[in-house]
Structure formats: C-alpha cells, structure tokens
Nucleic acid binder design. Structure first.
Lengths: 208, 208
DNA sequence: CTATTTGAACTGACTGGTCAGTACAAAGGA
DNA sequence: TCCTTTGTACTGACCAGTCAGTTCAAATAG
C-alpha cells in the first residue's frame, strides 16, 4: 500500500506507522460501513483501533481523509481482483470469473460494500471527485468484459454495454448486501450459483 | 398517505397539518437524500420547508421519526405503483411494466432512491425494523412477477426467483442512480429501453 | 560499550462550535 | 375554544480538530 512518507532514513522506517494505519483501516471500515461515515466519531474509531485520537490525525490529517483513504484502498483491492479475472481468454469465462471475484470480495469485506453503497451516489458529498474516479475504474473493467462479450455475439442484440455494466454492478452489490444483511444463512456457493445462472441467462452462449 | 397521529376527532382534522407535513416531507426528502440523514440538521429541514423548527417536533416528534415517516411514505408510493403494474395478465408484460414503474418512480424521486440506497443495508441503524418491512414489501412484489414468469417457463432453468428479485431491484436502483448522478444527459426513454432490452435477455420469451 | 541526542510516532486533555431537543408566549385559523 | 404554527431563546450533549508533552528506537558521540 501507500509508500512511507518522504522520510530520509529510507530503511525500516514506518513499520510501526504502517501497522497503525492498518489497525485504523480495519476499525474504521467496520464502523463506517455499519453506521455510515457521518454516524461514527473519530473517538470511536480510535478506541476500536486501540489507539489515541491524536494518532488518527497524525496519520490521516482528518476524518474525511481517513474515509477517502478507505474508499481508495478498498476500490484498489477490488479493481485489482476484477481486472485479473476479467482478462481470461474466453469472454464468458471472464464474466463468470469477474462475478465470482466481486461476490468474493464483497463477502470478504461486507463493510466495504456498505460504505460504497451508502456513499457512491451522494450528490454533493465530500468525496464526489474520488468516488467518480473509483466508479469509472470499476465501470471500465466491467465494460471491458461486456464489450468482448458483445463482440463475440454473446449479448442480446441492442444491449448497451454501459447500461449492462451499471446493471451488473448494481446486481452484484445488492445481491451481496442482501445476502449479508437479510439472508446470512445462505452459503457463498449457493449465492454464487444463483447469480451465475441468472447472468448466463442474459450473457450465456447463444447456442440454441 | 400515513394517517394523522392517533387523533380522536377523526373528521376534517388536519387539512392544514397535512399540508405542513407534505412541505416537510418534500424538504426533508430533498436534503436527506442528498446529504444523508445524519448530514442534515432539523433547522435546515425546517428552513427549507419554510416552517418553524417547533413545527417539525409538533408534527413528527423527532428527527428520526421524520426520516422513518419519509421512508414509509416513499415505499408506500413505490410499492403501490409496482403492485399495480405487476398484476398485468401476461407475465412478461407485467415485468416490463414493473421495471417501467420503478424507473419512473426513481426518476421522479431521485432523492428517495438516494435515501433508500444509503440506509437500506446499514446494519444496526435506527430504522432496521422499518427497513426490513419495506424491503420485504418490495421483494414480495418483484418475486410475484418473477414467480409467474418462472411458471410459464420464461426464466432460465435454475434461476431462483428470490435472487432474481434482489438482482432486479439492485439493477433498477443502481441504473437509476447512475443515470441521475453520472449521466443526467441521458433521456428517460433511452435508459428505459436499455434496461428493458437487457432484462428481455434473461426473462424474454423463450421462442428460439 | 555507555551516554546522549534526535525526531518520528503517539497520547489524551482541552477547546470551540454544532445540533437535537425543549420551553413558552404570542399569534392565526376553523 | 381548541388545534396548529411561529419565533426566539435556551440547554446540554456531543464531537472534530488541536497541541503541549511523552515514548522509544535508532543514530551519533565519547
């Protein structure tokens, strides 16, 4: 993750800092995901991380900056995984692998899904700019898969990849959240299977 | 919409009150949708509605109660419209009409879509119970359409209506929000068309 | 090898401001 | 007459951000 700050001693510097930042990330993600950025106090985050309040400001400068770092970090992780899955040779396989990665990621970091869904479409918002970037990042990856799918005629005539990408993202996000919040008893395989079957319906091999 | 508070005098009660409540709903919906419930003050809502702060408390009792009323009111409106569309004779037509209504509703009340998306999957949350009810309300309607679709073999083998319902809701919500927030230049017809085409892909007539 | 210095990392009490909710006297309206 | 609204003033809790001071590991000096 982010390189050590401009320090001169280059070497092992900031092993401590990096650990602290990680603790703060974990704590902040959990709390902010559950109760929203505005619903959590810096004191709570610090307490949850087992760190003094000043440390938050030492490391991130402000509450907003902490949340922004959280968003970037999470999306970087997600897009990395999606990107890797999305380049599989066969477009259909790539789509399924991408869906798989997204579900896996949201299952692994449900709080991030909550944070994302609750901040992504806020209109003025402290993170407009960042969020726009992040959105484009994900959208581009999904569009890539869908474009290739369209090229090999595996998408119904007339479907716009851009719309399909938004729809796919919405589906993945909402299915994951619904699973986590309202049906935690369902297994990952079960959810995965339902979504994949569903998506094959629209983007399956056209072999009938 | 929601009946006057436990009033005794039944009759013409609250013509004025109803107007005041409506002004508060409109103002609160706009502000809360944009900045989130925690990001808006009661003073702002009162000012936006052109009403004294005390009036908010006279009519709703608390900020939380106001937001809860807002959620209920909005979902009542939405589910009413969806329900009406969902009972069309032909399942495919019912699905398309339902999609149409949902997109229309979210286009008409984008702030409600924002409020919903940012509160729906919050885990402890002041409105857990209410939101759970609301979610079931919508989910049931969508499931109804999809079940009928499955009965008439227009859904791919193995698709679970419950998952499909969540997916559909996620698609509608996210496509609407993306349209409103990131692509406001697109026309309603254009968006509608792309979604309908997309959905026909998975739930179209199996006539190949 | 021991003593001293340096500075990044961290601490937590404190401040200034914000905001939900209350109080209440004085209208206005049916 | 009673229900509703207004406007203003107030309270008490809460909270983002600050800052003077502490800790400690590594660098430097003797």
């Amino acid at each position: 993750m982010s390189a050590p700050r401009g320090g001169r001693t280059g070497a092992t510097r900031s092993v401590r800092t990096e650990a602290t930042k990680q603790k703060l990330f974990d704590a902040a993600l959990r709390l902010v995901g559950e109760r929203g950025a505005a619903g959590v106090t810096v004191d709570e985050i610090a307490a949850e991380a087992g760190v003094a309040k000043g440390t938050v400001y030492y490391n991130f400068g402000s509450k907003d900056a902490l949340v922004e770092a959280l968003l970037r970090h999470g999306v970087d992780l997600l897009s990395e995984r999606l990107r890797r899955a999305s380049v599989l040779e066969d477009p259909s396989e790539a789509l399924e692998a991408t869906v798989d990665e997204a579900l896996g990621f949201f299952a692994e970091y449900p709080s991030f899904a909550q944070l994302l869904v609750s901040e992504m479409w806020r209109t003025p918002g402290a993170w407009r700019e960042t969020l726009e970037l992040l959105r484009d990042d994900i959208a581009l990856i999904l569009r890539g898969v869908l474009d290739r799918l369209a090229e090999s005629r595996r998408l119904p005539e007339g479907v716009r990849p851009a719309t399909a990408a938004a729809a796919l993202f919405g589906t993945l996000l909402v299915v994951s959240l619904d699973w986590h919040v309202f049906h935690p008893e369902r297994t990952k395989e079960d959810v995965r299977e339902s979504v994949v079957v569903l998506i094959r319906g629209v983007a399956g091999r056209r072999d009938c």
